[in-house]
Design a protein around this nucleic acid. Structure first.
Lengths: 193, 193
DNA sequence: CGAAAATTTGACATGACTCAACTGGAGTGG
DNA sequence: CCACTCCAGTTGAGTCATGTCAAATTTTCG
């Protein structure tokens, strides 16, 4: 139950709720516990739920032709992580979503969420704004990926996602930044000197 | 008027319209002619319109601290190009939008589009789907930018955007791919041999 | 404690950038 | 219609950023 309050708190930062709306939301979401390394969504599966992280840490990653992982997104408490396209279009996912730590997600089936949008308008507003932010964050990342060196990207990552850096292994940070673990290690050495 | 039919045709590929709806749409959009190199949106301005390209070609680009341009998106007939975040939140734009060729856009003010969404539901559906596709395309680009060499990215760009490659100068393709014009030139030489 | 995983280190290879010079073609003014 | 200029594109030399590979070291965790 306290987990659900995490959800409510995050929604209310963006859109205030009445007591009745809070209850509608709380009853619509269902918790799911994940072990460390457990995979929540496999490539090829259809993403049928929208998922909030109540506690823990997830990552979404792409597996390229040569078997290399490329992390698209991390998420911690208050974030929603998904293969959004798979969810929206009900087509097979291109990405994996995996727990980096023991994690609790609150999930809701797509049709239930659609009904919740009708019943609780602030919920729709909350999602629209989250979606916009996700899009902008992705745009910024694309541009930065083109215009900055790995060292600059790492420095900014540390500033922007201090907490995430402390919670995920370094090789995942490297994967997120698009460099090899060895190179990130060299960057760190250079910076701290 | 024939320009407007381009718009209708593109919408109807995604969402069919009644005759009344077609008229509502046609009267809501206003054409604007742009000369080659004319800038449609400056960084720092607020993007007040949603814009369809009826004819021509636009690019959205970011100007980094060292004055370098980085192209985020090209658009030709049937695409909508914007600083979406600026438009959605009515905050200053981070990107420039400029005509690569003489271009005709059909634009609509934000409040008018919102009203049109209410009046013509297929229009909202059309935009939602376009937005999803934009998000996915951006995600794919981010991943590819991390996992592929410039040569691979160029080869895929040619396949995917054959028409755009033929219409924009090579140095813009380089900027889109995140490489220098010299390097792209070298890649081309290598490939065609 | 011991095994497995993560990180570091260093030597070397390659991808990509910088800079400068050159080439060729598209305007433009006389 | 020519000569000139300007801009895009090419070329090559040298350099820097990043990747690869293998091994050593440290950390994590059963």
């Amino acid at each position: 139950m306290s987990y659900n309050h995490t959800l409510i708190r995050h929604i209310e930062r963006i859109a205030p709720l009445s007591e009745a709306e809070r209850i509608s939301i709380l009853t619509a979401f269902h918790p799911r516990e994940l072990e460390k390394k457990e995979i929540l969504l496999f490539r090829g599966d259809i993403s049928r739920h929208m998922r909030f992280i109540a506690k823990g840490c997830l990552r979404a990653y792409y597996l390229d032709d040569s078997g290399q992982e490329h992390i698209l997104q991390f998420g911690i408490e208050g974030w929603w992580v998904n293969d959004l396209y798979s969810y929206l279009t009900q087509t097979p996912a291109e990405y994996f979503v995996q727990a980096v730590e023991p994690t609790t997600v609150l999930q809701i089936r797509r049709d239930e969420l659609e009904r919740l949008f009708e019943k609780v308008p602030p919920m729709e507003r909350f999602f629209r704004i989250k979606m916009q932010r996700a899009y902008v964050a992705l745009q910024e990342r694309t541009v930065k990926g083109m215009s900055q060196t790995a060292e600059q990207r790492y420095i900014e990552f540390r500033e922007q996602y201090r907490e995430i850096e402390q919670r995920v292994p370094q090789y995942m940070v490297a994967s997120y930044l698009g460099v090899t673990p060895e190179h990130l290690s060299a960057i760190r050495k250079k910076i701290t000197s």
